[in-house]
Amino acid sequence: MSEQSGRESVLDFLAVPVVRLEEASGRVLFTNAAARALPFSLVPPTAVSDGEGAPLPPEQHPVTRAARGERLEGELFRWATPEGDHTFVVHSRVDRSRSPGVVTLTFQEVSPWRRAEEDLRRALGARDTFLSVASHELKSPITVLQLVLERLQRGARRETNLSGSQVAERLEPALRQVRRLGVLVQNLLDVSRARNNHFVLERERFELGTLVREVCERFTEQSRQAGSTLVVEDCPPVQVHWDRMRVEQALSNLVTNAIKYGAGGPISVCAGLQGGTVSLRVEDRGIGVADGDRERIFNPFERAASGHRVESLGLGLYIVREIARAHGGTVRVSGREGGGSSFTLCLPVEVTEVASE
């Protein structure tokens, strides 16, 4: 075995793709097993982009550059394939002890690290957005609450004969803000519990239709103020074994979401029973959810991108998903014919014990 072939046989054991080519001509002399195993070619005429994804002309292909004598020291290049992008750190070295010289290129794939970096960047962006929105959402009710109580205090000092009904009327705005604060704090606690696998269910038997109608009646006025009509289309009489408070919370979050994004259109709630599974569906005729956002919106602190500015912590749908998981069920969103969104919460009628992940 020649020294050259022996050296190349050693390269076959490397996990890093290696390409050896003739200087100037660019003729490929050898590719190791790792390079041959790739589902695409590392050498021209395959298209390649820079590390940021900008397409490069053929003369800027890393193999072409190395063949004409340029030394590559850890530059990033991206190959686009139907299965996804592959990003490599490329190094080159020229051996001119022979004529023509031999160029050796190594390709270290860093795609997983690049994806992790992008995920981290998105997470940091979501965190910053969350902190901004949370500050606004928590500050607003506190400000209103303070103004209402100060106004009531001044009134009590001036009007010593205030009736009970007058006091109650003036306290109503403050109570609304206290309830709002309670919901915000509860949502934050639920996120903490879900992430630490402490989402405990207190199951009981109850009639589904009663729960659905109670939730919809509670949001009738809020939907009317948003210009929407909220109706219960169908709900079979079925006894379920669920955590009533949690399912009520999940359905309330879906209805609230429909009111926020429903663009003043009608909102419908219906339930169905098939086999041993109940499906609760909330439909709106609003702005809809883009295909690329249909998984993301169920993550914490996420909101669907749209031209509408809706302030929220981005926790409602995440909590719905965790409540569904705790019951051994699922939640999904789909587009609705004619526009809008359809959220479907599917839960087994009988819930016993669901293991934490």
Results as ranks from 00 to 15, higher is better:
Ala35Phe: 07
Ala258Gly: 07
Gly53Asn: 01
Ala15Val: 05
Trp113Asp: 12
Arg65Val: 02
Ala258Val: 06
Leu315Val: 05
Asn161Asp: 11
Leu208Phe: 00
Leu347Lys: 10
Glu214Lys: 05
Asp119Trp: 02
Val247Ile: 06
Arg180Tyr: 01
Pro112Asn: 12
Gly227Glu: 14
Arg71Lys: 08
Thr229Cys: 09
Ser2Thr: 06
Gly6Asn: 11
Thr143Pro: 08
Leu138Val: 06
Leu147Pro: 06
Arg218Val: 00
Val89Phe: 03
Asp50His: 03
Glu23Lys: 09
Val349Pro: 05
Gly262Tyr: 11
Ser163Lys: 15
Asp293Asn: 01
Leu56Val: 02
Ser140Phe: 11
Pro266Lys: 12
Ala35Gly: 13
Ala116Glu: 14
Arg281Cys: 09
Ile287Cys: 15
Asp50Thr: 03
Gly125Leu: 07
Lys139Asn: 11
Phe30Ile: 05
Asn32Asp: 01
Val110Pro: 07
Cys235Arg: 01
Gly84Arg: 13
Val240Asp: 01
Phe206His: 02
Gln177Val: 10
Trp79Tyr: 00
Val310Gly: 02
Ser41Ile: 02
Arg98Phe: 07
Arg203Gly: 04
Arg36Phe: 08
Leu105Cys: 03
Thr64Arg: 14
Gly69Ser: 04
Leu120Val: 00
Glu248Gln: 13
Gln177His: 13
Leu152Trp: 15
Phe77His: 05
Ala47Cys: 00
Phe199Thr: 12
Thr229Ile: 13
Ser306Gln: 11
Asp128Phe: 02
Val102Asn: 02
Gln4Cys: 07
Arg203Phe: 09
Pro57Met: 02
Ala15Met: 10
Asn32Lys: 07
Ser140Asn: 14
Gly307Gln: 09
Glu295Met: 08
Trp113Ile: 07
Tyr261Gln: 12
Phe77Glu: 01
Val28Arg: 04
Phe77Thr: 03
Arg7Lys: 09
Arg114Lys: 15
Phe107Tyr: 15
Gln186Val: 07
Glu302Arg: 09
Trp242Lys: 13
Leu72Met: 05
Ser228Met: 12
Val310Ala: 02
Gly209Phe: 01
Gly164Pro: 13
Arg151Asp: 08
Pro300Asn: 04
Ser25Cys: 00
Cys346Asn: 05
Val18Pro: 07
Val238Asp: 00
Leu188Asn: 03
Gly314Val: 04
Gly74Ser: 05
Leu317Lys: 04
Ala33Asp: 11
Ala15His: 14
Ala304Gly: 05
Val19His: 12
Glu350Ala: 11
Asp50Ser: 02
Thr143Phe: 15
Arg294Lys: 10
Leu76Pro: 01
Ala134Ser: 12
Pro173Leu: 09
Arg203Lys: 12
Gly264Pro: 15
Leu29Gln: 04
Arg20Pro: 07
Gly51Asn: 05
Arg170Tyr: 10
Met1Lys: 11
Arg71Trp: 08
Val102Met: 03
Gly307Lys: 10
Leu211Tyr: 00
Thr31Glu: 06
Glu202Phe: 06
Leu171Cys: 11
Arg170Pro: 08
Gln60Gly: 03
Ile323Pro: 06
His61Gln: 01
Gly51Gln: 08
Ile267Gly: 03
Ser135Glu: 04
Pro141Leu: 06
Arg179Lys: 08
Pro57Val: 03
Ser306Lys: 10
Ser2Leu: 10
Leu254Cys: 11
Phe206Lys: 04
Ala174Cys: 12
Leu313Thr: 12
Pro236Lys: 03
Leu72Arg: 06
Gln166Cys: 13
